[in-house]
């Protein structure tokens, strides 16, 4: 090689070097959209949430009330036996006190932490429940096995989404 190769001499790259174009980067942003078919089971589940009700499916072979509902039992591999409405109450199976937003940015001073929890719904089989947020409760007051009830959005605001339940509150 005839040309003298310039070397950095061990100086680390800075963010400034990248942003000023000293270091070449190629940028592109993702532009694709999906619309997932919810299918028979989740379609009915979301429709009933819009109605303010929680529906599950039953597997008579395994004696399970399955939530979220599914068209087949993943354990015995038979089609579900039918639909059953269940309560909108349950108990906290596990929870976390979340100090960051979904993008990992920290919650601001004074902002309340998010309280995601697995709620075992009354009427569903043991260990079966739904993932939701807790509300109207101080983080330090949350207990395993605490009884909770769904707080629904007003009927005209429901869209057929899991967020039609705003959160679960202690009862």
């Amino acid at each position: 090689m005839q040309e003298k190769v310039h070397v950095s001499g061990g100086t680390a790259l800075s963010e400034q070097d990248v942003h000023s174009g000293e270091i070449f980067m190629t940028e592109d942003s993702l532009d694709c959209a999906f619309a997932w078919d919810t299918g028979v089971a989740i379609n009915r589940y979301l429709t009933e949430l819009k109605n303010g009700r929680i529906i599950a499916t039953e597997c008579r072979h395994c004696n399970r009330i399955m939530l979220p509902p599914r068209l087949f039992c993943e354990l015995c591999f038979k089609p579900s036996s039918g639909w059953v409405y269940i309560n909108d109450t349950g108990v906290v199976n596990t929870f976390s006190i979340c100090h960051v937003h979904w993008d990992a940015s920290r919650i601001k001073e004074g902002e309340k932490p998010y309280l995601p929890a697995v709620i075992e719904i009354d009427g569903a089989s043991a260990g079966m429940g739904i993932m939701q947020l807790l509300g109207e409760v101080e983080p330090e007051k949350i207990k395993f096995g605490m009884k909770v009830k769904a707080v629904w959005k007003p009927e005209n605001e429901r869209t057929g989404s899991i967020t039609d339940i705003k959160y679960f509150k202690p009862i």
């Binding site: 997932w36 919810t38 299918g39 028979v40 089971a41 599914r70 068209l71 591999f77």
Partner: peptide, 16 residues
């Protein structure tokens, strides 16, 4: 299109 079935339900049918 198969808007009536989720991918889970479609595969369950094939597997069965």
């Amino acid at each position: 299109t198969s808007a009536d079935l989720s991918y889970r339900e479609m595969i369950f049918e094939a597997a069965t």
